[in-house]
Computed example of a mutant assay.
Amino acid sequence: MKTSFKIYTVLCAAVACTISLTSCGSDSGSNATDDTTISSSNSNKASNNESRQKITYDTLALSIDKEAKLLNVSNDGAEEEYCVAEGDDFKWKTIKKKTYSGKIKYEFTGDTLILYEWLQESKVYQQHGAMLVGGKGGNIYGTWTIIPCTYDSEEEETYCDEDEEEGLIQSSFTISEDKFARKIAGIYLNKSLNYPTSNFRRLFNHYLSKGPGGDLPTANELFHESVYDDENSTFDGITIKELSASGETFISGGKTIIVNVLNFEDNFQNWKASVTISVDGKTCQNDYENYYDMTESLCDAKYSENYSLGTKTDKDGNEFKYVSQFRKNNHKEFLECLEPLTDPIIESIGKDKSY
């Protein structure tokens, strides 16, 4: 049996988040990327696999009970930046986070440190402990790094994750007499564009070949792979002239149609794309952006129609609304531009059908 990547990621979150308390304690579940901001790149017709990295640091107050082998941690004084809603306005503010404290049981197996989180609701320690290496066995002080393995305290067995994934969250901790310092390195690979197998292509060609009742796609469908492989190879009434990872040229209803993906960026939880569809030289463009990692430059009331709001609580128990997601998509204008160009094609294909 091996631990899946999802379980490993959760364990990283448990030890790097629940244990360190400064990130997860303040209901960051509504925004999975609070600590994994990834820089974006300008990728033209991108099939970009370069990695993106964000390193986050936190320092917690710590007291150690060596006899009980217990770490007591607190995030007292922790702060975080948010785009905060104030009436109809939005301000980039530093918020003091709600104070959380917790405890972690530790033990050593040789030179490996094992940490078990205290589960407050269940009033028990976690059965599966996160395993860390890099320090000296028997000495809690030093720098320890989580490895993709867990230790089952009941079964007394170790389970490791051997899966290769496109992303990795690596957490390490430096433990001293009064400080528990966390370092998270989030390393991710951009997903590559593969237009031929995208759901965008399937939906668009399905619409043209099957007529009204289908859906005209927008650029967000570029991020989804079609599960209908057979429908991605042959479409009714379509003659393919050119097909590549970033678009295609084909003839349908006697008209030349060119699909061109101008931009494609998929950086974990932040993504954007631009796609054009040209019919006999007339072009419509759809631009799509989605960010969970808010920045100060995007914190402005002029973007309010692109916001999704969440609610959090500050150190003093005061609730505040903040921007949890930024999404922009000119799909309405795109479809209004595209439909008059595609309607004649659909009508022409329909006349040629014998059923």
Rank of each mutant, 00 (worst) to 15 (best):
I147M: 04
E155N: 13
E166F: 12
Q127W: 11
E80C: 06
I146T: 03
E121A: 13
S63W: 06
P148V: 00
L132A: 01
Y100A: 04
M131T: 08
E86S: 15
Y125N: 07
W118N: 07
H128L: 12
C83N: 05
D111F: 11
W144D: 01
T99N: 11
K69P: 09
I140Y: 02
Q127K: 15
G142V: 06
Q127S: 14
T99I: 14
T112L: 02
E81V: 13
E155S: 13
A68I: 11
G142I: 04
G142S: 05
V124G: 03
E79H: 07
D76E: 14
I114M: 06
A78S: 12
C160F: 01
L168A: 01
E157A: 13
E154P: 02
L113R: 02
L132T: 02
D163E: 11
G102W: 07
Q126H: 13
G167R: 00
E81H: 07
L132H: 01
E166Q: 05
Q126N: 14
L168C: 01
E157R: 10
V73W: 01
L115Y: 04
F108R: 02
A68H: 14
I140A: 09
Y100G: 03
D76Y: 05
M131R: 09
F108Y: 09
S153K: 15
S153F: 05
Y82L: 10
E79Y: 10
H128K: 12
Y106D: 02
L70K: 14
A68N: 15
E164K: 09
L119A: 06
E162Q: 06
E86Q: 13
D89N: 14
L132W: 00
I64Y: 05
G134H: 02
I146L: 07
C160Q: 03
D161V: 01
Y82G: 11
W92G: 05
L62M: 11
T158G: 04
G134R: 01
V73L: 13
K69R: 15
G135W: 03
G110C: 05
G87Y: 08
Y141N: 08
N139V: 14
C83S: 08
S122T: 11
D152P: 10
V84L: 02
T143D: 00
E162A: 08
E154D: 14
Y125I: 12
F90Y: 15
I114W: 02
Y82S: 08
E67Y: 07
L132Q: 01
K103Q: 14
